[in-house]
């Protein structure tokens, strides 16, 4: 029983990590709390759904969702953030304008779905189960874990081993200096928002498939979870987001299984509270990183 819950927790947690990673990437790089990340996540699920509905294979739907939500994420950057970047109020201003962008995306989703819950056609994904002793897991869970692990590794490689990653981290450190060294900040903004959005889009499809339920409001609960993950892991820390996402998933599954279900959320936020009391910068946070809005 406990092994089963651990497996389920790891799969749930990997999707949390995927969602939170895109969120923390934007925060870590540009000090923007992008609340429209929930809307981008939902857009990914919608794009995937409509692709499948039009007869495309699932893998192609996944690729389309990644590209589509990546572009939508960049459109959010152009509309909500680039326009106010010169004002000197980016940190607080972006928080507000991202709420606006999120509302736009949600309204669009609401219109497209007529406020209904959309479901993938029957047998979009083969329902198969494997058993290893006491542990039972589905083919979908295996695929989710596989996709998430591959994406996380690709992202780590990209950020820490390539010239593009170096450029992103340079702009994160000091945009002016980076541009003096030949880094084109516009290109870095595009890449970062695109990657963030693509990760959210994949997470959207994964969640849509897991619960076979896609609706315009599906991103909101994950946004709240992403806050927990990002704060728990340390603001802006990529490693922290992955570990904290997994921990949260496992913890949540165990709590649901062994404790009164009404207590689950209480325990999650209580845990967050305790971690922040003991280590205010989060599990992997550096002392230098502070919440952008409270900085001045």
């Amino acid at each position: 029983m406990i092994a089963q819950q651990l497996v389920n927790g790891i799969v749930t947690g990997s999707v949390y990590a995927l969602f939170a990673l895109g969120f923390t990437l934007i925060f870590g790089t540009f000090k923007i709390l992008n609340l429209a990340h929930a809307g981008v996540f939902m857009s990914g699920a919608f794009i995937g759904y409509f692709a499948v509905l039009n007869g495309l294979p699932l893998w192609l739907a996944l690729v389309l969702a990644m590209i589509g939500s990546g572009l939508i994420s960049y459109i959010v950057e152009l509309g909500a953030f680039a326009t106010i970047r010169g004002s000197g109020q980016i940190e607080f201003g972006a928080l507000i304008s991202s709420i606006g962008a999120n509302l736009c995306l949600m309204s669009l989703g609401q219109r497209l779905s007529n406020t209904k819950v959309l479901r993938f056609p029957f047998e979009t994904f083969p329902v198969e189960f494997y058993e290893f002793g006491p542990v039972r897991f589905s083919f979908l869970q295996v695929i989710i874990l596989l996709v998430v692990v591959v994406l996380l590794m690709a992202m780590m490689f990209y950020l820490y081993k390539t010239s593009f990653g170096r450029q992103i981290r340079a702009v994160s450190g000091n945009e002016r200096v980076a541009s003096l060294l030949g880094v084109n900040p516009g290109l870095v903004y595009f890449q970062t928002f695109f990657i963030s959005g693509a990760l959210a889009g994949v997470a959207g499809i994964m969640i849509g498939l897991s619960f076979n339920s896609i609706h315009f409001y599906m991103g909101e609960p994950y946004l709240l979870k992403a806050f927990v993950v990002v704060v728990l892991g340390g603001l802006g820390s990529v490693h922290g987001a992955v570990v904290a996402g997994m921990l949260l998933g496992i913890f949540q599954n165990l709590a649901v299984a062994y404790l009164p279900s009404a207590l689950t959320e209480t325990i999650i936020y209580g845990l967050l509270f305790v971690v922040l009391l003991v280590k205010p910068s989060g599990l992997f946070g550096s002392e230098g990183v502070q919440v952008g809005v409270a900085r001045r």
Binding site: S163, R166, Q167, R169, A170, S172, G173, N174, V177, A178, L181, G182, V183
Partner: peptide, 16 residues
């Protein structure tokens, strides 16, 4: 760039 290593700072310079 404080968060980048010495070598990464130098390699970044190569971009120009």
């Amino acid at each position: 760039l404080f968060e980048l290593t010495v070598e990464e700072n130098l390699l970044l310079g190569e971009l120009a």
